[in-house]
Amino acid sequence: MADVRHIRRRRPDDDLEAVDSPASALRRAAKGDEAAFGEFYDMTQRRIFGVVLRVVRDRSLAEEITQEVYVEIWRLAPRFDQQRGSAVSWATTVAHRRAVDRVRSEQSRRDREDRQHVTPVVVPDPVGDVVTDQLDNTRVHSALATLSESQREAVSLAYFSGYTYREVAAVLELPEGTVKTRIRDGLIRLRDHFGVTP
C-alpha cells in the first residue's frame, strides 16, 4: 500500500505518528477504548478546562461544561480521525463554542429579566495578564507581542470574553467594521506567527 503518510501529516499540535499524542489517544478512544480516552483527557484537560473557565468565569459551570464537552468528543471520536486538523484544535473548538453559547444564553436570559441592563458592563481583560502566569506560554506570549495593542484587545475580548464582534465594538466604542478588521488582522498575524498555514 502506498505511503500516504506524507499527505496526512503535519499539524503543530499533534504528531499523528507519536504513540502518546492526543490524536493517537483519540484514535484508540474511537474504538471504544475508555482508558485511551482517559489519556486524551489527561493530555488536553488543562487547555479545555482553562479556556472554558476563562470564558464562563464560574468554576462549577466550567466543570459542568467541560464534562459535556468531553462526552461530546467521546461520542464523535469515531468520526474524528478522518476529520479536519488537529485533535487538540478540534476539542478546543468544541469547548470554546459550547462555553460561548452558554454564556450568551445566560446573558440573554438576564437581559430579558432585567431590561435596564441592556449592555453588559465589562472590564477588558487582556490576554497578557493571564499569559504571564502560565508556564508554557512563551510561544503565545511572543506571538501576542507582535500584535498591536488594539488588535490584542479585540482578539482577547472576542475569544476570552465570548463577545460577538459587535459587542466588542460596543465595549470599545468603535465602529463594527474596525473591530472586524482588527480581529481578522490580529488572527492572521497570530496564525503566521504560529506557523499554522501549511
Binding site: 484537560q45 473557565l53 476563562r54 466543570e63 464534562q67 488537529s86 484544535s89 506560554n137 506570549h141 482578539v155
Partner: peptide
C-alpha cells in the same frame, strides 16, 4: 481554529481531579 486553539493554551488551568472521574463515568 488551530490558531485559536494555541491561544487557548494561554488560559490553561488544571481541572479538578474529580472531573476526570466524572468524565470517565459519563462516557
Amino acid at each position: 481554529h488551530v490558531t485559536a486553539s494555541v491561544l487557548a493554551g494561554s488560559a490553561a488551568s488544571d481541572a479538578p481531579e474529580h472531573l476526570r472521574t466524572g468524565v470517565l463515568t459519563a462516557i
